[in-house]
Write a protein that binds this DNA or RNA. Structure first.
Length: 553
RNA sequence: GCGCCAGUAGCUCAGUCGGAUAGAGCGUCGGUCUACGAAACCGAAGGUCACAGGUUCGAAUCCUGUCUGGCGCGCCA
């Protein structure tokens, strides 16, 4: 069963009392730890937000409220003190009993603490990475993969029904070029003087593809690649693509990224869906002929200019396939479509929304999170990456270099809306300068203690007093459901990473101030619950961003 | 020129339904291991939140304008 934050019941009780005092039906009560811990455990601005509606001085409302709170339903026994401060803030200090009850509740909720908060739960189709199957995924794809996969995990954890899809651009001129490039490398393996086309794929990985292809077909195509015939090229393109895609899937799996579906663009063309999509747009008046080409009237939906669907030579554009693809996606029964795109595709958003709208759907069902660029820094300088020069850093290279945990944590730690520099020297470090170990170390430390101390004393009751570090740690633990909820609502996995850094910091501070083993039963019981709760939340949180939570390091 | 994203500590970045003295990691300086893991902790230095106006009890946060940076603006994908 999903379990809410232990602060939530307090907030509900507070809102009820505040409404009663102010005489207003609904009180919006923010109840959160204050900026400065000296003010108490929790603070609320409810008196100030109610002041206008109630036409009363906020301090006056606050004064009335603090006299009622300690005895109110749901609060009795939990409020150690309530004071009015500043313009009308109410500062609360909570009793040891509340901390003990809260720690126990979180510890016992296990992996369900923070789960299932989607409001409302929806069927969501998330498409991400969708790298061209003509080459290995690079660092930019790595960021999109880390973002998309983490987001999918968070959406799923929050109660949405998530499908993860990879759109395969396996059609058109680029595939022909890829086939020709593979064919040329295959010819070279047989000692022929075949050359990769000028505008083809020059990367070394094409040799690898050709080698594996040769293992499949042997020398059967020896006399058909110099010069190549059309049928041979088609075979090289198709099999090359399959091999490339298999390799891509394997690397992504290594990166702990999985997909439910791989949707082939070719099936849209061969199945007639592209043609039917264009006909539908013509029928609805959303497409028109001009100078021999077919245009999509995307300006009707807010785009800057209309876009070509079918060129004057009769061939269809990339957009035509995307019309078919998005009409298909929109008709599958999902409430929401998420297209995760790179920053260089942001100009495409208006077009995609136009497709959805022209298909008779609510354009707001489509969300397009844009993942900004990531650049690599090494030795204090930007690492130059060039596809042509072969200095592109692939996802595989990145994993080999800094490891999956560091790569995923770094890539998801920053907001997807911000371009950032990934410092390889820091990410590579296995020591204290690497943030991912800061979080993992907290988990391993707790595992070590709990391994020696199996159970808490039963019925120990709350301790007489609390250490400030205990208060801070529990209040941060109480913030976990809100952190996940925010990550889900804002499509921002980096909120989870930021939360984990905060939690790890509070735990390490707690650890240094508070011993667990050998303390009085009531103290030890609370601290063991804090350890169990912290360990669980770290494990859950790291799991949501695809990072392991080791028991030993 | 138009559009999207950004501009917060020496560096990389959090902070975005407006709240009290703006935070973290790294880096710098100084401390802490004879009790549960020092990959840790404690303390210090370090900020005109790009700039200028506006909204209000209150603005890093909302509005307007300016400047700077990244990306985009094809009958390419």
């Amino acid at each position: 069963m999903p379990t809410e934050s232990p602060i939530t019941p307090l907030a509900r009780a507070l809102a009820r009392e505040a409404s009663a005092v102010a005489g207003t039906p609904d009180a919006a009560a923010a109840l959160e730890p204050p900026a400065n811990a000296e003010f108490g455990d929790l603070a609320t601005n409810v008196a100030m937000t109610l002041a206008k509606a109630a036409k009363r001085n906020p301090r006056e409302i606050a004064d009335d409220l603090v006299t009622r709170l300690p005895d109110a339903d749901g609060l009795a026994g939990y409020i150690a003190s309530a004071e009015v401060a500043g313009p009308g803030f109410i500062n609360l200090t909570l009793s040891p009993r509340w901390f003990a009850d809260a720690a126990r509740a979180i510890a016992e909720a296990g992996d369900d603490y923070g789960r299932g908060q989607a409001d409302p739960p929806e069927r969501i189709l998330i498409e991400f990475v969708s790298a061209n199957p003509t080459g290995p995924p690079h660092v930019g794809h790595a960021r999109q993969a880390a973002y998309g996969d983490s987001l999918a995990r968070i959406l799923d954890y929050s109660g949405h029904a998530v499908t993860r899809e990879f759109y395969v651009n396996d059609w058109g001129r680029q595939m022909e070029l890829f086939g020709a490039s593979v064919a040329a490398r295959y010819g070279q393996l047989l000692g022929l003087a075949t050359e990769v086309p000028e505008d083809g794929y020059q990367g070394d990985y094409v040799r690898g593809i050709a080698e594996r292809l040769r293992e499949e077909v042997g020398d059967d195509y020896a006399d058909r690649v110099d010069p190549p015939d059309a049928e041979a090229l088609a075979v090289f393109a198709l099999r090359g693509k399959d091999l490339m895609l298999a390799e891509m899937t394997a690397v992504l799996a290594r990166f702990r990224v999985r997909f439910d579906d791989f949707f082939s663009e070719t099936t849209l063309h061969e199945g007639g869906m592209v043609a039917r999509g264009l006909e539908a747009l013509i029928a609805s008046g959303d497409a028109y002929e001009h100078e021999g080409a077919l245009w999509f009237r995307t300006t009707d939906y807010g785009d800057e200019k209309d876009r070509v669907l079918r060129r004057s030579d009769g061939s269809t554009t990339y957009l035509a396939a995307d019309v078919a693809y998005h009409l298909d996606k929109a008709g599958r029964g999902d409430a929401r479509l998420l297209d995760v795109l790179g920053a260089d595709h942001h100009g495409y958003i208006a077009r995609l929304r136009a497709v959805i709208a022209a298909g008779g759907h609510d354009p707001d069902m489509l969300e397009v999170p844009i993942v900004q660029l990531v650049s690599l820094v090494e030795g204090g300088e930007a690492k130059k990456m060039s596809k042509r020069a072969g200095t592109l850093v692939t996802l595989s290279d990145l994993i080999d270099d800094i490891g999956v945990d560091a790569a995923r944590f770094f890539l998801v730690q920053r907001s997807h809306e911000t371009a950032f520099d990934l410092d390889l020297d820091v990410a590579r470090a296995e020591g204290n300068e690497n943030p991912v170990y800061y979080v993992q170390y907290a988990h391993a430390r707790i595992a070590g203690i709990l391994a020696q101390q199996p159970g808490a004393p039963a019925d120990a009751g709350p301790p007489d007093a609390l250490d400030p570090a205990e208060r801070a740690l529990l209040l941060t633990l109480a913030g976990w459901p809100e952190a996940v909820h925010e990550a889900e609502r804002r499509r921002s996995p980096h909120r989870v990473a930021a939360y984990l850094m905060d939690l790890a910091r509070d735990f390490h501070a707690f650890y240094h101030r508070c011993r667990v083993v050998g303390e009085a039963p009531a103290v030890m019981a609370l601290r063991l619950d804090l350890l169990r709760a912290t360990r669980q939340v770290i494990a859950t949180g790291l799991g949501l961003v695809g990072v392991e939570a080791p028991d030993r390091m």
